[in-house]
C-alpha cells in the first residue's frame, strides 16, 4: 500500500484539551480525502497534525515519511502545502513580493511566480498590497503559493469559503491537476453539495476521531 500519511490512535491535546482523541486515518498517494463533521469535530486539528503543527501525546504514524512522534516537525512542514482559513501573507507587501519572499526563504526558483499569479487570475493585482485584497483574492494568493510549492500533500482548510463561482471552478481544476500529478489532498469542508472534479473519499469526524 502506498501511503502519503497514516495516523493510528493519535491523541492531540493542546493546553490539556483533547482535540483529537484516537484518530486513525490513512491517506493514499494521489487521493483526495474530504474530512467532514460538525464544528469542533476535529477537522482543522487533523489538518494541523498532518501539517506538523501539533504535538502528539500518544499514537503513531508518519507523514510523507516523517514519524509523527519522533521526527522533525519542521521537515513535515517543508514537505506539505497549507491553505488555511485566514489570510496568510503580509498585508504591507504586494502579491508578488509576498510570493518572492516565500520563494527566496525556501530556496525555490522565482521563475514560476508570474505563471502562478496568472493561473489564479491575479495578473492585474501582482503589484497590489495584499492587505487591499478581498478574502477570496487572499485565497487565490495562497493557491498561487501552493502552485509554486507543488507539495506532495495538500492540506486545505475550508478551501471553498469566500470563493466565487469562477474561483471555485479554478480550485477544482487545480486540485484535479494536483492529484493527476500524484499529489495527495486532504481538505475539510462544511459544504454538502460540492461537485468535485476529483471524487473524494469522505471521512466523517466526530469528537476528534473518525466516525466512518
Amino acid at each position: 500500500m502506498n501511503l502519503a500519511a497514516e495516523l493510528h490512535d493519535v491523541i492531540v491535546a493542546p493546553s490539556g484539551f483533547p482535540v483529537l482523541s484516537g484518530l486513525t486515518l490513512e491517506v493514499q498517494v494521489g487521493e483526495c480525502l474530504l474530512l467532514e463533521g460538525a464544528n469542533g469535530a476535529g477537522k482543522t486539528s487533523a489538518l494541523r497534525l498532518l501539517g506538523g503543527l501539533s504535538t502528539v501525546i500518544s499514537g503513531h504514524g508518519q507523514i510523507l515519511g516523517v514519524d509523527i512522534a519522533t521526527g522533525d516537525r519542521r521537515e513535515i512542514r517543508r514537505r506539505v502545502g497549507w491553505l488555511g482559513h485566514e489570510g496568510s501573507f503580509y498585508d504591507e507587501l504586494t502579491v508578488e513580493e509576498n510570493l518572492t519572499y516565500a520563494c527566496r526563504l525556501t530556496q525555490r526558483p522565482r521563475a514560476s511566480i508570474a505563471d502562478a499569479i496568472e493561473r489564479v487570475g491575479l495578473g492585474d493585482r501582482r503589484a497590489t498590497r495584499t492587505g487591499l485584497l478581498s478574502a477570496g483574492q487572499h485565497r487565490r494568493v495562497a493557491l498561487a503559493w501552493l502552485l509554486i510549492l507543488r507539495p506532495r500533500l495538500w492540506l486545505l482548510d475550508e478551501p471553498f469559503a469566500a470563493l466565487d463561482a469562477t474561483a471555485r471552478a479554478l480550485l477544482h481544476e487545480i486540485l484535479r491537476d494536483a492529484t493527476q500529478a500524484g499529489a495527495s489532498i486532504v481538505m475539510s469542508s462544511h459544504e454538502k453539495n460540492l461537485e468535485f472534479a476529483t471524487a473524494p473519499r469522505r471521512v466523517t469526524l466526530l469528537g476528534g476521531r473518525a466516525a466512518s
Binding site: 501539517g51 506538523g52 503543527l53 519542521r74 521537515e75 513535515i76 512542514r77 517543508r78 506539505v80 502545502g81 497549507w82 488555511g84 482559513h85 485566514e86 489570510g87 496568510s88 501573507f89 503580509y90 504591507e92 516565500a102 526563504l105 525556501t106 495562497a142 503559493w145
Partner: peptide, 17 residues
C-alpha cells in the same frame, strides 16, 4: 505584531524555516 495574525504566523511556520 506583523507576524501575529493567525494566518500569517501559521503560514510562516509552514515554511519550516
Amino acid at each position: 505584531a506583523i507576524e501575529s495574525p493567525v494566518g500569517t504566523s501559521q503560514s510562516t511556520k509552514m515554511l519550516g524555516l
